[in-house]
Every structure is written in structure tokens, then in C-alpha cells.
Lab assay of single mutants.
Amino acid sequence: MSGNGNAAATAEENSPKMRVIRVGTRKSQLARIQTDSVVATLKASYPGLQFEIIAMSTTGDKILDTALSKIGEKSLFTKELEHALEKNEVDLVVHSLKDLPTVLPPGFTIGAICKRENPHDAVVFHPKFVGKTLETLPEKSVVGTSSLRRAAQLQRKFPHLEFRSIRGNLNTRLRKLDEQQEFSAIILATAGLQRMGWHNRVGQILHPEECMYAVGQGALGVEVRAKDQDILDLVGVLHDPETLLRCIAERAFLRHLEGGCSVPVAVHTAMKDGQLYLTGGVWSLDGSDSIQETMQATIHVPAQHEDGPEDDPQLVGITARNIPRGPQLAAQNLGISLANLLLSKGAKNILDVARQLNDAH
């Protein structure tokens, strides 16, 4: 009898209710805020589980004197976190989706994509230029951005401005803007500013005609071990179906173009009346040469937790077992079709030249 009692006690200790789920994140304040929001949602869904947040620095956090596009290494903000995932030191990792490459290392998958916040870019102005827009900034004003995508589009749109690289986390960039006289304004992701509670610093939100956004911008991705079915089931509740389908289309477009950090590629997606609209573009580094096109596809946005595919093969690095396969494939095909259209119009040449120029500098 006593033996059975011990077995029952052991089973209770090993039951999922007692389990601590370890969540990996970057150390920056924004990353911690984003991770806290994901953990809060998981806690609400699984009140019996405990969650421990483990923060670590990544290569991208450490190399702050070089433009991201020049470092010449993929997975700048993800490699150390993936290493911890691989060694079973954490069970899942919360990322900004735009930091996750469209091809993940073997053994990993994006197990959830959370509801997207505003994906557009924002302009934050130096205190002396508050009330201005990019259009009304004085001639030769210097605007800071760490992104080739932003610089290429904005140089084309605002030729009277000069664009220079600015690195560091959000706090560091804002301090550089406010305390030094080098920059009249800087460009940042609206979602990051909003998550930090800095709505009052948003001086201008850039519309798609001015600057399309990065693939996955404004959404959070939760990376897990691809074979860890328990954790895949656990994080599945975080999937937002519309965000998922938009981001599958965007990531398929980028992957098929073979774009990345070192080339200016941008997108804009919208879901309306059962249609998914995808606009994508590529630019030369100075913005003088560009190709942009829009395509659409009829896609039914499923309700969360309709029964999805059981075999769960990944699409552009994403596993969404609780979302039907048909809409996911339709979104992926839309991204591939748009990429093929741009490639047929000469996108590869623009991107190759951009890559060579970026590598040469």
C-alpha cells in the first residue's frame, strides 16, 4: 500500500501541473516587456503551470559599433537563445518575429505568432524639431536608422535628408537623439515604442507609400524545439490566425527572394473581405531603383483552434497545428507568387547589386 502511495506522490510531482516552463529572452527592456506579455497570456491559459524567465545577451546586443547589415552573420539576435533551447536550458524563446530568419536551424520551429501590433515605422524627432515631419525637416538634416530597408525607401522619398546608421537598443538610440546634436530624427518601429509606453515620442507614423515595413514587423514569434510536442501544444494558444497568415505570406515572399538583413526588402499586408493583399518591394541601397507589386488571394481566416493538420510540417519556419492547413498554404503560395513576379521584373539584379555594395563598404 505504502509503495503505491509513493508512486502516486511521484506521479503528482512529475505531472504537468508541477512543471516549471523556462522562457528565454534577450536582456533589453523591450525584450523583457514583450516576454512578460507572452508569459502573462500563458499564465492565464495555464494557471497550474509556473513560468521562469531567463534573460541573456546576444551577438546583436554586444556589437554596437557596426551596422547590422555589415556584421555579416545571420541570427544576430537569436543564436545564443537557440543555443540555450538546444541544450534544454529553456523550453521556449520569445523573439520579435522580424529577427527570426525565414529558414531556422534544424530542430527549431516557430510554435506561435502572437497578435500583431502596429507594424509601421515611426519617426521620433529631436526636441528642437518636435512638430515637424520628415518632409518639413531642414535641408541636409541627419536621420538615424539601423535599417537598409528604411534608408533606401526614405532616401527616395525625401532626397533633402541624409540617413546615417544608429545602433543600440531603444533606450540607447533615444538617448543619442536627445543628448547629442548629430541626429534631427530617428526611425523606429511603432510597436516597440508603444510597448515601452513611449507613445508621446511618436512624431509621425510612416504610411506604406512612404515606407513599407519589415517582414514580420510588429509581431512576436515564440520559438521552440520542433519535436517538443508538449510545448508546441502549450504555445499553440498564442497563435493569432490573421497575423499568422499575413506573416506566412510575408516570410514566403522574403524567403523566395532570398532577402535578408543586408538587402532592402519591404512588405505591406492587409486582410479585407476574405482577401489577403500582399505588397512587396525591393530597392537599391540608395533607393534610386525599385520594383513594387501587389497581389491578392482569397483566404478564409479560420477561428482559433479549428482542428489543424496533425502532421505539422513547417511552413517558412512556422508550425501551427491548430490552424487549418489550406489557408496557410494559400498564404505561402501568395508570397511565392509575388516573389516570382518581382524576380521576373529584375528584382534579383537589384538585390545582387545591393548585396555587393553593402559587402564592399
Rank of each mutant, 00 (worst) to 15 (best):
R150T: 01
Q275E: 05
Q180Y: 11
E242P: 14
L30H: 01
E310L: 10
L276M: 14
L92W: 01
D359M: 01
P127D: 06
C114T: 14
Q275N: 03
R26I: 01
A44I: 09
A226Q: 12
R149V: 01
F129S: 08
I350W: 15
M212N: 01
D273A: 04
G197W: 05
R246N: 08
P241K: 01
T190D: 09
S290E: 15
S28W: 01
A226K: 15
D36M: 14
P47Q: 11
K79D: 10
E139H: 14
T35P: 01
A270I: 07
A40T: 12
D230F: 01
L244I: 01
V124L: 09
L342W: 03
P313V: 13
F125R: 03
F158P: 01
A252W: 01
R325Q: 14
L334V: 15
I186F: 07
E162V: 14
Q292M: 13
A297N: 01
H199F: 15
S141W: 06
R26W: 01
E139Y: 12
D352Q: 11
D359F: 07
L329P: 01
H199K: 14
S337M: 05
L68T: 06
D312W: 05
R325I: 15
A252C: 01
G221H: 06
F51L: 11
L81S: 03
R167Q: 09
L177T: 06
T172V: 06
D36Q: 15
R195E: 04
A360T: 13
F125M: 11
L64W: 15
S57Y: 10
R150H: 05
I110K: 04
I350N: 06
E310Q: 15
Q296C: 01
I21E: 01
N88M: 13
S288L: 13
A303R: 13
Q204D: 03
F163H: 11
A112I: 01
L278D: 01
L244N: 05
R251H: 01
S28A: 07
S141V: 09
H239V: 03
I187Y: 01
T59P: 12
L81H: 11
R150W: 04
I63Y: 06
L315P: 09
C247V: 09
T243P: 05
L220I: 01
K43E: 09
L104E: 05
K227Y: 15
H126P: 11
L30M: 07
N340D: 12
E293P: 01
R321C: 07
G280M: 01
Q217N: 01
H305Y: 15
S146E: 01
W283S: 13
E250Y: 01
D352G: 01
L220C: 09
R164G: 10
R22V: 14
R251E: 03
V23D: 01
S290Q: 01
P101R: 01
L238C: 04
R255M: 13
L42P: 01
G197T: 04
N358M: 15
L161S: 06
A152S: 07
